[in-house]
């Protein structure tokens, strides 16, 4: 089972937010928990999600593959989800994405050799006034007004954390 006893309690609470018989509504929140615990969503984890929500596994696959936040392949410990949409590009996002790729020596979606990082360009994060912006799961804290120096510091501190 992909979930700890504590998580299972939490899932029970989440299911109660929805009317009786509508527990499938808990799917997105539970997938977020599963990914927070496992880093990504392997098939057996998704099957366990189906089991705790009493739905067919295909219903989980359909949903997990629709939404872009879910990683269906192993990813680095820190997924740098950096915005690539128009407004951020007006303030330099494109060159920062290139800078990040050069710095970490990976392409989009790849994992760095030390297993720490994956770069994942994403669409507008509703931070256009404070762009360029990136976020890192599972807490998804925003790092705004990015510059090359700020990226250097961020990468340094994450490497130090390991």
């Amino acid at each position: 089972m992909a979930f700890s006893a504590e998580r299972l309690e939490q899932i029970k609470e989440i299911k109660n937010r929805y009317p009786a018989g509508k527990h499938k509504s808990a799917l997105l929140p539970v997938l977020h928990l599963a990914q927070a615990d496992h880093g990504w969503l392997p098939i057996d984890v998704m099957n366990d999600v189906a089991e705790v929500l009493d739905i067919h596994p295909i219903e989980v696959y359909e949903v997990a593959t629709f939404y872009t936040m879910f990683h269906l392949k192993p990813v680095g410990k820190y997924v740098l989800e950096i915005c690539r949409t128009g407004p951020c590009c007006l303030v330099g996002a494109e060159s920062l994405i290139q800078y990040l790729k050069n710095k970490l020596n990976v392409e989009e979606g790849e994992v760095t050799a030390d297993g720490l990082f994956t770069i994942k360009p994403v669409e507008c994060l509703a931070s256009c006034g404070t762009g360029p912006v990136l976020q890192i799961g599972p807490d998804y804290i925003y790092k705004e007004n990015l510059t090359e120096e700020k990226l250097d510091q961020l990468i340094e501190s994450l490497r130090a954390k390991g």
Partner: peptide
């Protein structure tokens, strides 16, 4: 056991596994 996976123009009919 099958459904529509992914989205947009890369959607596909699949069993996933």
């Amino acid at each position: 056991v099958h459904g529509v996976l992914n989205r947009g123009d890369v959607s596909e009919i699949s069993t996933y596994i």
